[in-house]
């Protein structure tokens, strides 16, 4: 027995509401983030991730209040991503009660930011989020700005570089699979997980509980992230853990 593989429900938050899109468009409302976070905590979620997808900077404060309210009631690790561009943004989220921040676009724009943030606050709270799209067999490119902008960076090389720069964890999303319910891009997941010595969270495409199992057993992921299968009541986190345990994966029950 040893370290458990983690199940992380993800809440995409837009103007204080949880939403979920398919391939980053066609957004559906899924409810109040504080209530949803509490429900997942009760179901045995190992962590909760909030991705702020609010487009307007005027509404950025909303996510801070969401994190504050959740942190008063939910005593498991909380990660917040979206719009983290400066050391000051990291500090604000940590002070609101987040344990980790996920940095995506800002890391590509200026990789030294990851170094500065991890030097300042410690690697343990710096997650680098990578959105990747397949460009050729066994090749994936990093995209930013919610998947709209190609960067020319190879996803595996980028993950390695971010680990060297002090990232404590990688949140890896397949843009090809996100919202499709076809399962993780297992080849991508495995390529990144095997390339770095820091933990990797697999994300994008979970449609049933076997996909979570595959992410760990075939993708070698340290943690699996899913949104819609939990939001719309298809499965509970507890059911996900039962399925993983039945497949011989160590989980916290």
């Amino acid at each position: 027995m040893g370290l458990a593989k983690r199940i992380i429900p993800c809440l995409d938050v837009d103007n204080g509401r949880v939403v979920k899109g398919v391939k980053f468009v066609d957004i559906r409302d899924a409810g109040n983030p504080v209530e949803i976070a509490r429900r997942y905590d009760e179901q045995g979620a190992d962590e909760i991730t909030f991705l702020d997808i609010t487009a307007s900077s005027d509404n950025r404060e909303t996510i801070v209040h969401v994190v504050e309210q959740v942190a008063e009631q939910v005593f498991i690790p909380l990660t917040v991503g979206g719009g983290i561009r400066k050391v000051e943004d990291v500090r604000r989220m940590l002070n609101a009660g987040a344990d980790k921040v996920a940095i995506n676009t800002a890391a590509v724009a200026r990789p030294e930011f990851v170094k500065e943030a991890s030097d300042h606050f410690g690697s343990q709270c710096i997650v680098v989020a990578i959105d990747a799209k397949q460009t050729a067999p066994g090749k994936w490119e990093v995209f930013t700005h919610g998947g709209r902008k190609a960067t020319g960076l190879d996803a595996v090389a980028w993950a390695r570089r971010m680990a060297e720069y002090g990232a404590g964890e990688i949140l890896l999303t397949s843009m090809d699979r996100d919202g499709t319910k076809d399962g993780f891009d297992l080849a991508l997941t495995r390529a990144v997980c095997d390339a770095v010595s820091i933990p990797v969270i697999a994300s994008g495409g979970v449609g049933d509980l076997d996909h979570l199992v595959d992410g760990v057993t075939q993708g070698h992921a340290d943690a699996v992230l899913a949104a819609s299968i939990f939001h719309f009541g298809e499965y509970t986190v507890g059911q996900a853990k039962e399925r993983m345990a039945a497949a011989g994966i160590e989980v916290r029950q």
Partner: peptide, 16 residues
């Protein structure tokens, strides 16, 4: 691990 798979550092997550 005993199976040969690498253990990541930091040690991050729920352990006994």
């Amino acid at each position: 691990e005993a199976s040969g798979l690498p253990l990541k550092v930091p040690h991050m997550g729920w352990n006994q």
